[in-house]
């Protein structure tokens, strides 16, 4: 008994160390970025002596930076919405309809995940060149919708595969038309998956640089703006804006998680 406990203790310690290493690997860059947002020096670096909130004020009053941020938010909102709207019918068909050559169709949907963004960006640029006015926000939205679509479809597809089919049949049996059934049963019960697909798409689009760079024309998304800055100066202003973004993302994720948990407790939960 004692031997077993000691063994468990030692392996527990090793597991703890390993976990700390993994988390450090994930989060150290983010922590560093946030830390230097408070560095009073013009060029961030160790040692960290004087702290300031000044960079936040500077970043949030920088018109050019805010314009790029707003462009990125709009592009992410639009491309995530479009991706979810397009992915839902595709996922429904893939999960519930008997289709010939389903593996091939799935393959074509997943393929953009493994195509380098460089290739996609270049391809889209060649495709867009003859079309006047498309390079810019429209171009980036299209590029990001393409990228988001495969992730959103896969998330919704796997959700619908596990969907209790008898609920669909019960609704139909009780007199609901296809459309009523979708609104009354499928949509509300798919809300967490739809939210997940949307958030994933939003995040992906928000941080995407390579494909956007090819098709943005003279428009600047936030990653493009930051990249342009980095070419001459490493200002803590960028750390500040990045910190704001991290804070907003974390808050959004926590809110989404809480919402899903509350729904689940409402639907199942123990006997009251």
């Amino acid at each position: 008994m004692i031997g077993a406990e000691r063994k468990a203790g030692r392996s527990g310690w090793a597991l703890g160390f390993y976990t700390a290493l993994i988390y450090g690997f994930f989060y150290l860059p983010i922590v560093t970025l946030i830390l230097f947002a408070f560095d009073a020096k013009e060029v961030p670096g160790l040692p960290l002596k004087d702290l300031t909130l000044g960079w936040f004020a500077a970043a949030l009053s920088d018109r050019q930076l805010l314009a790029a941020l707003s462009t990125s938010v709009w592009v992410a909102l639009l491309s995530a919405s479009l991706a979810v709207l397009l992915a839902m019918p595709a996922a429904l068909a893939l999960a519930w309809v008997r289709l010939p050559a389903k593996p091939a169709i799935l393959g074509f949907i997943i393929a953009p995940m493994v195509v380098p963004h460089l290739v996609l960006g270049l391809g889209l640029l060649l495709l867009f060149r003859p079309v006047p006015g498309i390079l810019g926000v429209a171009g980036v939205v299209i590029a990001h919708t393409t990228l988001n679509l495969c992730y959103a479809t896969m998330i919704l597809y796997s959700h619908l595969l596990g969907f209790q089919r008898s609920l669909v049949e019960a609704a139909r049996d009780l007199g609901a038309s296809e459309i009523r059934m979708f609104w009354e049963v499928v949509l509300p019960l798919s809300a967490p998956a739809i939210l997940a697909a949307f958030l994933m798409s939003f995040t992906l689009s928000f941080g995407e640089f390579v494909a956007a760079w090819f098709v943005a024309g003279f428009e600047r998304t936030l990653p493009i703006e930051i990249w342009a800055w980095l070419r001459h100066i490493l200002s803590p202003k960028i750390n500040a804006i990045a910190t704001v973004i991290v804070a907003v993302s974390v808050a959004m994720t926590i809110l989404a998680q809480l919402w899903i948990l509350r729904r689940r407790n409402g639907a199942r939960g123990g006997a009251a």
Binding site: L167, E169, A170, P188, L189
Partner: peptide
């Protein structure tokens, strides 16, 4: 016609 399903298929929401 109306069906009572084996798993009841009650709408959880």
């Amino acid at each position: 016609t109306s069906m009572v399903f084996q798993d009841y298929a009650l709408f959880p929401h």
